[in-house]
């Protein structure tokens, strides 16, 4: 491997890192703006024009806050929890193809940090480690509310991960690959997977909401019952890390949804007009980002529309509705493939 390739990868990794942080930062701003707009308010508009500097102000505020570590807590785990949450949130961005592979004569550079052939599995693995951040934090706080929140988070994640994985199996059966880049490049033009696998897509989106602990599945941190859930005892930037990790997760989930089901960087007809390899990558990235941002908007839109589920309803939905549905979907996919002579 040439050194330029490695350097390129490093730069790309740094870019993805920065992008995740930047998008997460501005998600907090847009979350508040969208919430306000949906409720006929104006939202933050004091820091800079339209309040555009609000995330910076929030960040400074977070750092300046008094940092409290409860005496009864387990110091190391208490710090480890938010760090792990943040770490895993940032790791997931590695396998997402942000733009079509840059091909110019002999130069070949995939705009994806790591093109591993089991990308989908990697995503699932890292996401399920993410729950440890919440669990450890909740456990280390030595607080009943935190522990309840952590318990809820872990059982919720386990239940929904099953349905999520099963919904992906149908997709994997159809595409015949576990590589995220392959899946993205197969959906060229209008061949978006959502058109072939609408049910899987729906299940996946619902599970993504649950996985990121967003409303209507935000039971681990529901204020009405658990004060703050797993982050009750957290303050200052440690709390900031948890909240930030949630936003990064939301960003990555949106990116994954758009890659797996909505064509990723593909958009019909666009490559008939754009042929210059540089612009192909730029346009691909723009398409990918706009899809991702739309799903972030969807996340927020749903959050400010739907009330929270009750815990038994959540479990009911996960185990008795989504899992059977995704199994049925697998069977249907199999039958469909058999009928169309794909196997």
């Amino acid at each position: 491997m040439e050194s330029s390739f490695i350097i390129g990868k490093f730069i790309l990794a740094a870019c993805v890192f920065g992008l995740s942080l930047f998008v997460a930062m501005y998600s907090t701003y847009f979350e508040r703006k969208i919430a306000a707009f949906l409720q006929d308010r104006l939202g933050p508009n004091r820091a800079g024009p339209f309040g555009i500097l609000q995330p910076l102000a929030d960040g400074v505020k977070m750092f300046m806050k008094e940092e409290i570590t409860p005496i009864v807590s387990n110091k190391w785990l208490f710090i480890f929890g938010p760090s792990l949450a943040m770490l895993t949130a940032l790791m997931t961005g590695a396998v997402i193809p942000w733009a079509p592979t840059y091909v110019n004569g002999d130069t070949y550079f995939p705009l994806q940090v790591a093109d591993i052939n089991i990308g989908v599995l990697y995503l699932f693995g890292v996401v399920s480690i993410g729950v440890y951040g919440i669990m450890i934090g909740g456990w280390a706080s030595n607080n009943k509310y935190s522990l309840m929140g952590a318990l809820r988070a872990s059982s919720q994640m386990i239940s929904y991960e099953l349905a999520m994985g099963l919904s992906i199996i149908a997709l994997v059966m159809m595409t015949g690959t576990l590589s995220v880049r392959e899946i993205a490049s197969q959906q060229i033009g209008w061949h978006w997977n959502v058109l072939y696998q609408p049910l899987a897509c729906l299940i996946f989106i619902i599970c993504a909401f649950a996985e990121t602990n967003r409303a209507p599945f935000d039971l681990p941190e529901c204020e009405t019952e658990l004060v703050g859930g797993y982050h009750t005892e957290y303050s200052s930037m440690k709390l900031g890390f948890y909240l930030f990790a949630e936003y990064i997760n939301m960003f990555i989930s949106s990116a994954v949804i758009s890659t797996l089901f909505f064509g990723g960087y593909n958009f019909p007809l666009i490559y008939n007009y754009v042929t210059d390899p540089f612009w192909v990558s730029v346009v691909g990235f723009a398409v990918m980002m706009s899809k991702t941002l739309f799903f972030i908007f969807l996340f927020m839109w749903v959050r400010w529309t739907l009330p929270r589920f009750r815990y038994d309803q959540l479990m009911h939905l996960g185990w008795k509705v989504l899992i059977p549905l995704s199994i049925i979907n697998i069977v249907l996919t199999g039958i469909g493939m058999w009928l169309t002579d794909k196997i």
Partner: peptide, 21 residues
């Protein structure tokens, strides 16, 4: 029902805001 709810909220998105600066 969820879609109906989301339709209601999105209609508010573009409405004139009640806030006075």
């Amino acid at each position: 029902a969820i879609l109906a709810g989301m339709w209601i909220t999105i209609k508010h998105f573009l409405r004139k805001k009640a806030t006075i600066n």
